[in-house]
Simulated assay, not measured.
Amino acid sequence: MQDIHYWKRRSEVHLKDNQNSVQYRQKIIEELRDFISFDAYCCTMTDTQTLFSIGAVTEQSIEDIHQQIMSLEYDSQDINSYVYLVESGKYIGKLSDVSSQSKRYREVLEPHGFSDEIRAALMFQGQCYGFLTLFKRIDNGQPHFQDADVNQVKILMPVMAEALMGFYHTIIDERLFIEEEQSGIIILDEEHHIISTNTKAAQLLTLLRNNEGLLDWQIPKPIQAFCAKLQANKLNSQYSLLVPINNKGYVTVQASVLMTADSQQQIAILLNEASPKEMLPYLLIAYHLTPREKEVVVEVMKGIPTKIIAQNLGISSYTVQDHLKLIFQKVDVADRNELVWKLFTRFN
């Protein structure tokens, strides 16, 4: 078993050698195979607020059943759900300890030849930046994970999480080169097969697939997550998910359920380049602003003078000025006008 110092050194090597999170995750997981026997994996990055997947690397045997797994994730209170692992503070679980109680095991994993899984929430500084799931097949010489395997993953978890945080908070200065007109629209049937799409959606769909290293017929994980949540009636249709695309820009995903004239359910996915308003909360996190600094920035965006900001936030004008100095340093600007431009105006 390798200790955390080993994994930190290896993580630094892979971060240096690989320019995007997909390559990084693949390299770390390949190295993990030297110490744990597993037959398949899925490693997803998540939106820290909703725990929605914003992109995953997945072996093909799991890719084939991923939508089924995700549907059960949102449609039932199954063992070791990802949300449960985070909210309970457990963070990691081995399915074979409780597999007889798992609907996921009975209905999906076992019928497809899998005997066990380890699920791990990749947590850093109280935020979940992804999930790592390892699988064993029934025909594996040792079909169940051991406690030592769980302990090795536990050691790796915060190291991977810190690396994914860096990828998640990377500030992308580029704009997407896509059609400027209406929203990108994708229509999917009940089985999540694409029925139709417009030009803009096709362009953005390609970006999302490339972001995960998917083939041109596969459905990106953010869209899978929306479909599963909608079908489980656990999604506000007004919700918009922001997906950073490595070195490209930011895509937003929305979805709603449609009914055909013969009462068949369809799902409409809306894809767009993120607006400045949608990007602002993400950028405030990316620049590592404190909660109070975020409040000050929001006031500045409204054009409110220092004295009124102080009154609105219940602090002194001197304190507002101190916050602004730190904000300017973090965002690397000289004044309010540059701050508004860097966080908002330049994305119009």
Rank of each mutant, 00 (worst) to 15 (best):
S96R: 05
H288D: 15
T206D: 09
S21V: 09
L72N: 12
L208T: 04
P111I: 13
K307D: 15
H112L: 10
Y287M: 12
D78N: 06
S53M: 11
S240V: 14
G130A: 13
G113I: 12
V86C: 02
N233H: 03
V150H: 06
Q2H: 08
V108M: 08
T345S: 11
A161P: 08
N18T: 01
P291S: 05
R119W: 03
V98W: 13
D64M: 10
K277D: 15
L324S: 10
Q203M: 10
I315F: 08
M123L: 08
P291Q: 04
T48D: 04
L207V: 02
Q264C: 05
I308P: 09
N210C: 03
G314K: 07
S71Q: 12
P244F: 12
E30I: 00
A334Q: 10
R175S: 11
V257C: 14
L280S: 15
K200G: 02
A225M: 12
A40S: 15
L188P: 00
S99V: 10
T44G: 14
S11F: 02
K154A: 09
Y74T: 01
V243G: 11
S263T: 04
V251C: 06
T290M: 04
Q203I: 03
K342Y: 04
Q142T: 15
S316L: 03
K221M: 15
L289R: 10
G130L: 11
L85H: 02
G314H: 09
E117C: 15
L85V: 01
F344Y: 15
F167L: 07
N312E: 10
L122D: 06
V298R: 14
T133E: 15
T206N: 08
D34P: 03
V150F: 04
W217V: 02
G314E: 09
S263A: 12
F131Y: 11
R137T: 14
L235W: 08
T199W: 09
F114V: 07
D39G: 04
I186E: 02
R175F: 06
S76Y: 03
V253R: 03
R346Q: 11
P143E: 08
G314I: 09
Q101N: 12
M259A: 14
L32T: 00
M165N: 12
S99F: 12
D3Q: 06
L326V: 10
L326A: 09
R9I: 00
D75G: 12
A161H: 08
L215D: 00
L164V: 13
F35M: 05
L72S: 07
V251S: 04
Y84K: 02
D75K: 03
K90W: 01
N198A: 01
Q67V: 12
I194T: 02
R25W: 01
L156D: 11
Y129N: 03
F344V: 13
E191H: 05
Y168K: 11
C227Q: 07
E299R: 15
V13D: 00
M45Q: 14
T319F: 08
R106K: 13
L271C: 05
Q265N: 04
H323C: 06
I245K: 01
S183V: 00
S256D: 15
G89S: 01
D332N: 07
V298L: 14
K16T: 06
N18Y: 01
